Amino acid sequence: MDMILDDKTLDDNVESFFSHDSGDPRDKVGLSTDVTKGFKFSEIRVLPASTSKVECCHFSSNGKLLATGGHDKKVTLWSTESFTVNSALEEHSQWITDVRFSPSMLRLATSSADRTVRVWDADNAGHSLRTFTGHSASVMSVDFHPTKEDLLCSCDGNNEMRYWSIKNDSCAGVVKNAMKMRFQPRHGRLLAAMAENLVYILDVETQVGKLELQGHKSPINSVCWDPSGEFLASVSDDLVRVWKISSASKGHCIRELNHSGNRFNTCVFHPTHPSLLIIGCYQTLELWDMAENKTMTIQAHAQKVSALAVSSDNALVATASHDMVVKLWK
């Protein structure tokens, strides 16, 4: 595959909101940061999400609910308006690995080390609607298709990916060589799946691979799409790469960031600033302005930042951590 390092910004119309001084581009800052011209990133709430490690979090499509889960074997639904617990989902027998809301309705899916995937009604979460079995190892990720309400996907620790029909309560297909994945937003024509140090871009309709994104030397920890579905970020311990995914079956690396001593773990695009990537590390967040190729480090948690989530409706950012709390930022 033809790999290109391009100097163009992700969005030529987005001004840099990081400072333009000649200081160290990796400045340590406090919990509240005025970067420039009104851009602010502040911790606004701490949620005591668990009695053990928190591994995952995700906002509902309207931003009114936040789901968190981890090693206490349950998923907690929080109101982002009152910051109180709406309900707790407690049918899994092992720790929760991933949680995702449906983009089109108030359903959510949960995956677990108990090798199952469950689907819930967020408005009536007393019992799960569906339980999918068939994985031979811990299910490591789960995701809803953005437009096909019936289609769900999950991956396990044996690098097996399964498509599920919610309506038929059955497996609709099996693909090998994927441990974690995310559907492309909006149209969902593509799916980004990762295994070891590679990212595979699959055609959802045919379940056939279209691209193989190379460049990471270490195993990839996570991937995330930007809201447009045109850009994909991939994160390994020592490297973050941002790719432009074209409709002509091409993937170009347009940005990359090497770590400076703190391991990268997860990432998400900022909900209102498209050229800002938020990267979760051990105890800290890296705010990477890709337009200016500058980063700032924010002290965020007492342990590893295990997951990130954003809501475009209320511009909230959630950070989950092994320190047993989830923080909300804005």
Rank of each mutant, 00 (worst) to 15 (best):
N158H: 15
E160W: 01
H58C: 10
W120R: 12
T51C: 01
E90Q: 15
D114I: 09
C153E: 05
E81P: 09
W78Y: 14
S52Y: 10
D123F: 02
F59V: 06
L66F: 04
H135V: 03
L151N: 05
L65M: 13
W78I: 15
S154E: 10
W120E: 11
E81C: 14
L151P: 02
G69H: 13
A67L: 09
T110D: 01
S52N: 14
W120C: 12
D121I: 08
G134Y: 00
T76Y: 07
F83V: 05
N124C: 03
W78N: 13
D72T: 05
E81Y: 12
F101H: 08
A109F: 10
N158Q: 14
C57L: 05
P146M: 10
R130Q: 11
A67M: 09
N158V: 12
E149M: 10
T68V: 09
V54F: 01
M105R: 15
M105Q: 15
S102R: 13
R115S: 14
A67V: 04
F101G: 07
G157F: 08
F144W: 04
S79D: 12
T80E: 05
R118E: 03
N86M: 11
S61T: 13
C57M: 07
S82Y: 06
K64S: 06
L66P: 02
F101K: 09
M140E: 14
G134M: 00
K53F: 09
C155D: 11
S61Y: 15
V75D: 06
S61I: 07
T133F: 01
H145P: 00
K74A: 12
K64D: 05
H145V: 00
S128Q: 05
F59R: 09
W95F: 06
W95C: 00
S128H: 10
N86R: 14
T76W: 06
T76H: 07
M105P: 00
V119N: 02
Q94C: 08
C153F: 14
S82Q: 09
C57Q: 07
F101S: 06
H135E: 03
C155P: 08
A122H: 00
G157P: 03
E160F: 02
H145C: 00
K74W: 08
H71S: 14
V142R: 03
D150E: 11
D150Y: 05
R118D: 02
T68G: 07
T133V: 08
H58A: 13
L77R: 06
T116W: 01
S60F: 03
K73C: 07
D121M: 07
E91V: 04
F83R: 05
D150M: 06
G157H: 11
L66T: 04
T116G: 01
T133D: 04
P103E: 04
W120F: 10
D98Y: 06
H58Q: 05
R118A: 11
